[in-house]
Amino acid sequence: MLTILRLTIKEVVRRKILHVTILLSLLFLALFGIGVRFAYTNLTRNLDPLRFLIVQQFFVLGLFFGSFLVSFLTVMTAVGAISAEIESGTILAILPHPIRRSDVILGKFFGYALLLAIFSLLYYTALSALVTVLTGLPLPYRLFPVLLFTLQPLILLSVTIYGTTLLPTLANGIAVFMLYAVGWLGGMIEQVGYLLKNGTLIHLGILSSLIMPADALYRKIIATVQSGAARSLTGNFLGPFGVQAEPSVWMLLYTGLYILCFVLAAVGRFNRRDI
């Protein structure tokens, strides 16, 4: 498994996926920083007592876009983890070696997971530092939301890895993005449901979170990253982009099981697959 893990990391580095991602992330952060600087100056001119709460909204917005960035990166890097190797024929020379097929799946999963976790951690830290430096107000660096943000890509990664054992590369990419969109849209609908106090919309949102819990985890992150007052402001200020009701700890447990099930399903599916 370690051999495949090392190769996976080497591939991401050698094929310049990491370079491009880091470069574009820096550009994104620079743009975001300029926006924060000007918006902060304008917004706090008349709302000075709310400065600290406004800063947290900027941070949440940064996390929102960061979640998108990490999700796209996850799908784009892992979409052909197995299917592209079957299509190109590289897998033909790997599987006859005395290795288990599960080692190939787990090696790739943990290789991508490690890189994505490091990227997410760096993004979170850079965003936190950027907002602090530009506003002059220190943001609390809580371990729990950091951990959740770092592990967030594992949800989409597990689905993508399962999909790559089942579908051709392009079909897998489309399927995972659509699934992600379902989760994201469902999350929005749920927030709107809370704003309008509409039970049907709330249940629809919860159902979509069970199908794809990525958005629910994002809501959990922004709920835990803020102080109580800021959380309340986020609900009003960001509307469906904020969080009206914090996902429970059961949702986190469900998400953990969700990831585990998809990884195991990927192993089972790849074990049975003819190459």
Partner: peptide
């Protein structure tokens, strides 16, 4: 399988590895 070698027909190797690295990877496998 440790004592079996195989050259597939329609194969391709990781283009971003050097020849030496590729052999090292297969040796590890």
């Amino acid at each position: 399988r440790r004592k079996v070698g195989f050259l597939p027909e329609n194969f391709r190797y990781q283009a971003w590895l050097s020849g030496q690295e590729l052999l090292s990877f297969h040796a590890d496998l």
